[in-house]
Amino acid sequence: MVPVAIFGRTSTQEQDYQRQVVDMRKIADKNEYEVVSIITEKISGAKSNEERLGIQRLIEEAKIGMFEKILVTEVSRLGRSTLETLKLVEELHSYGVSIYLHDLKTETLNDEGEMNMQTEMMLHMLSLFSKNERRLTIERIKSGMAQARANGTHCGRYKGTTEAKEKFLSKYNKVIDGLKRGFSVRECVKLYNVSLGTVAKVRKYIKEDLDVLEAA
């Protein structure tokens, strides 16, 4: 049986990627593939590949030859940044791993391990469309906020409402403990199910406190 991985992604914690996994399991069963890895993440596809733990795990497992194919519902699950998505596809191809895109009913590599021109063009176009969609969304949000301000509506935090450092740190005792025990930021993200930005902020505050103690 051909070993395959299933990859699923949602942009927010509230969204559910289980539908993606179920659909790809059906494809695997239909083609008699062996699912050896299921990798999921909840993070914006606009983030860099280095910031995404799911993508990093996907690359690591591809590199050691755990699977021959990756099953995804659509190219935007891999990413919404044109450059990052194409970098990812090229790296996976360098390990001989093909990507099955369910919405296109096609794979990125043929039986000879080569990318055909049609698939290459579609990947470029779809990635560009995804990036353009994100740009338009951001523009609509900015336009809406500008209109709200013009109408006298306040947007964003009010002055003086920034969360106090002590209150912020009190919510992440496990992260603090993990950092003090020597875990990296990415390890803490995975272990404690918090965002990369949150762990980075906790680490920054801890370092500030240590600097103050050393200077005293």
Rank of each mutant, 00 (worst) to 15 (best):
V89M: 11
E114D: 10
T85G: 03
E114N: 13
L109N: 07
H93D: 06
D111Y: 12
V89I: 15
E107G: 06
N110Y: 00
M122T: 05
Q118F: 15
H102N: 15
D103P: 06
L109H: 10
I99R: 08
E107T: 12
E90C: 03
L126Q: 07
D103K: 09
M122P: 00
M115Y: 10
V89E: 10
Y100G: 12
L123V: 02
K87C: 02
E114Y: 12
L104I: 14
M121S: 11
D111P: 05
T119E: 13
K87Q: 08
T108Y: 06
T85H: 01
E120S: 14
M122C: 02
H93G: 04
T106M: 15
L92E: 00
E120I: 03
H93V: 01
G96L: 00
V89F: 10
L109T: 08
L123I: 06
E107P: 04
D111L: 14
M115S: 14
Y95K: 07
L109Q: 09
V97M: 13
G113E: 11
L126K: 05
S98Y: 04
D111E: 15
M122Q: 06
E107K: 10
G96K: 01
L88D: 11
M122A: 08
K105W: 12
M125H: 09
T108V: 05
H124M: 04
T85Q: 03
H102D: 15
H124F: 10
M125Q: 11
L123C: 01
N116I: 05
E120K: 11
L88Y: 12
E84I: 02
N116F: 00
E91D: 00
L123M: 05
T119V: 14
